[in-house]
Amino acid sequence: MKRQLEIENIVCGYPGKFMLKSINFEVIKGSFTGIIGPNGSGKTTLFRGITGEIPINSGNIYFKNRNLKEFTIKQKAQKFAIVTQKIETPNITVEEYVLMGRFPYKKPFQFLETTEDFRLAEKYMKMTGVFKYKDTLFSELSGGEQQLISIAKALTQEPEILLLDEPTSHLDIAHQVRILNLLQRLNNQYDLTVIMIIHDLNLAGEYCDNIVMMNNGHIHKSGSASDVLNYEDIEEVYKTPVVTRENPISKKPAIFLISERVLQGKQKT
């Protein structure tokens, strides 16, 4: 198993407000990692630290044993593609949107796209199932479709690691499953490393091989989904009583919530 990304003692955040405390973890090539944790636990801060959106105060990030600081911003964009939570909706067609993914490969005075750029954009639009919208305006599509198009754009960057910040938030279950199945397929078939922040513990349990559970700016626990998603750790971190069982079909951990009334053993009056 090849180590692809190594996060070593990183400290980053917003001085005076919120800081991550010395984070360490590794990501294996071709793995599917979920970052979970309650609101304010530092998931997005960690994500921003890795993607370079906020500076890292101390510690190092290594990509294939090479310090990320040695990469230019363009080189980074050729290795990492990022799907953010907040998607701007410019008035451009889906094809134009997806083609933006080729920007990291443009030469200084290259103003037009190459045949290869068009070919890749088409390939990934087809793979994500949005090819039919290619001439439609991006802003006219629904949130779920826009999310798929963002993923198509990220794939057009031909990255080695795909990072996603809550790709399924605000989507109905059909779109959630569609997006996660797509990520799983990319992960399996193309050995693409996927790292995503996800709120839904059941989806995390079902789709992620590895889980990093954050709490109060540090890693509470990391490991395989069945190691991390147990009721003790979830209750400790989320301060919410849950029951965990094995999904009878996928054999992955499934989490059930219990309402206050049931917990107190009361009947509905």
Binding site: E53, Q75, A77, I82, T84, E88
Partner: peptide, 24 residues
Amino acid sequence: IYFFAGHLNALRLGESNAKHLGID
């Protein structure tokens, strides 16, 4: 300014998206 046409195009997707596409 024309030299920055591609950068301005990427900025249409928002500043953080443009950054992720390799733009300072």
